[in-house]
Amino acid sequence: MSTHRIGSCLAASIPFDSAHGSTSVFSPAATPAHAIYSLSMLVLSITAAIFLVVAGLLVYVLIRYRSRASDTEEPTQIYGSNQIELSWTVIPILIVVMLFLATARVIFATESAPKPVSAMDVTVIGHQFWWEYRYPGFGVVTANELHIPVSDPQHPTPTYLTMSSADTDHSFWIPRLAGKMDLIPNKINTMWIDPPATGLYLGQCAQYCGTQHAKMLLRVYADSPTDFAAWIKHQQQPAEENAAVAEGRTVFQHNACISCHSVAGTVATGRFGPDLTHVASRDTIASGAIVNTPANVRDFVSDPSHLKPGALMPPMHLNDHDLDAVTAYLMTLK
């Protein structure tokens, strides 16, 4: 399709690179994003054509009809012409009809796509500045890093996200996988994604939700079927009991931590903060804002607002000893 060629030229002229870490809407990596990409190329070419014609006319008129020093008379007065005006009413109508039909097709193809039986369900709940993911089919709860299986176009295994919010509005946006969808309290939204290639897809919350809206980052890991199965299996385990960090566990369980965090298989059942059962298995903490290293975790627990000002976890005022212990404990929660 020629519109695709125009699109690639456009994409090449500005580095909309599809390299690792890209969040460009012009490097689609899943069906919904692809459908939008093709449609956007059509729209871009039509609007570019309109622009060229109208701006071209404008430039021509400005040059051709500029006043000259020799002018003394007023130009001929023209008051209008019904025919001409009719023509520039009808032509835009035709363009609009065409654009509209192309759009309607993609709307229905994306939003009313039949859900295959092989689809996997994930419930996404937005919280002020972090993401909760629940896998109802597997009994898994995790936070901030979403793992999904890749979807082979021959045997599609798309992931269907059922979304809502625990507090304010949020929006789930991974540009390379699909358009965004808002998470709204008291309302259930759905969307689906089906990346055929493994990898990490980035994005971030796209609906202003409060102080730390900027650091409510999204990470979606598309795993190969075997990797995904292994990951799920691991997540289903209760938290690891490690005698070496018994002290840290005590500190954790004797502080307010447990009223906000869950650690499966322990007394910690809070739901206000992210589930920590396997926190050490994640690459990042605080919704992708901080790399998951012992030093960072320690820093975060001692005062979250230091690394993520406005985060809803209060500073826990632990002494250095307890901090070290808790950090050691958290790092064992693989």
Partner: peptide
């Protein structure tokens, strides 16, 4: 106006909105 038209194409808008 033309970028407005792009935004009005709702699937494209799912990408562009709030950006």
């Amino acid at each position: 106006g033309l970028t407005g038209i792009m935004l009005s194409v709702s699937p494209f808008n799912w990408q562009l909105s709030a950006s």
